[in-house]
């Protein structure tokens, strides 16, 4: 059976907000190391994966590996019934078809219990190779969200140019063009933690769909910073840390120039 106790319902709420736009149903794979999820969007362009480590929970017990097929819309509805500071306990029997959620208010005077029906979800699991990326950029997550929002006005896609001294996002469309450049080391809000850092092996230039990137920025509330990892002609990795519990990663296939092949 699975039993996991988390002190802040808000974390789970934010996590769900970060994935529910991209996928509708997903399997939550539970094992003794923690809870994993991997799911692709319908059109197989983007993939979202998160890990909540067992150590991150106040209490965690999972006797045997099992996966919970969950409709994300339904889970979101149930989580709306929890207060942000509530303590959440997830419970599920191995062969059961329910996920039980218990919400306890911080001062323990209100306890609510919900059961969510599980589903059989036939999903493909992708093997993601460990990749050494040519460029790894850490920047403020709210800045990244703003760039995506701003450039969406101009075009459907953004060109990301990463060189030694900075990272440049540019877009051009019918009404005109625009670009945003962030310099290495600079911080947008005088907070050293969110300053832009670049680890570069080789300069890269890639084109991505802004629609998907904007979708990924739904994870912004989870973390102050975001890491973009890029190499030529491979999917972009966008990673947000989930406090000290784990991470959420998004992969996005690049747009490829026509080579007529």
């Amino acid at each position: 059976m699975l039993e996991a106790r988390m002190t802040q319902a808000a974390t789970l709420k934010k996590l769900l907000d970060a994935i529910k736009e991209l996928v509708t149903d997903a399997n939550f794979d539970c094992n003794d190391a923690g809870i994993n999820l991997q799911a692709m969007d319908n059109s197989h362009v983007a993939l979202v994966a998160f890990l909540l480590r067992a150590q991150g929970f106040e209490h965690y017990r999972c006797d045997r590996n099992h996966s919970l097929g969950i409709s994300l819309a339904s889970l979101t509805k149930i989580l709306k019934c929890a207060g942000n500071d509530d303590v959440v306990t997830l419970k599920s029997e191995e062969d059961g078809d329910l996920l039980s959620l218990v919400f306890e208010s911080p001062n323990q005077d209100r306890v609510s219990e919900y059961d969510l029906k599980l589903m059989d979800i036939d999903s493909e699991h992708l093997g993601i190779p460990e990749t050494e990326y040519d460029a790894v950029v850490k920047l403020s997550s709210s800045e990244f969200q703003r760039i995506c929002r701003d450039l969406s006005v101009l075009s459907e896609s953004v060109i990301i140019d990463c060189s030694k001294d900075g990272i440049k996002f540019s877009a051009s469309g019918d009404i005109g063009s625009g670009s945003v450049k962030l310099k290495q080391g600079a911080s947008v809000d005088d907070n050293a933690d969110t300053s832009t850092t670049i680890e570069l092996k080789q300069a890269v230039t890639l084109t991505f769909s802004l629609k998907y990137l904007s979708n990924f920025t739904k994870a912004t509330p989870l973390s102050d910073t975001v890491t973009l990892s890029m190499s030529g002609e491979v999917p972009l990795l966008v990673e947000y840390k989930v406090s000290d519990v784990g991470y959420i990663r998004y992969y996005l296939a690049p747009k490829i120039g026509d080579d007529n092949a």
Binding site: M40, V45, E124, G127, P235, I256
Partner: peptide
């Protein structure tokens, strides 16, 4: 002529 969106399954293999 415009760039076409790539697909993840051409980069990652289904396990």
């Amino acid at each position: 002529t415009t760039a076409t969106q790539g697909r993840l399954d051409s980069f990652f293999k289904v396990m």
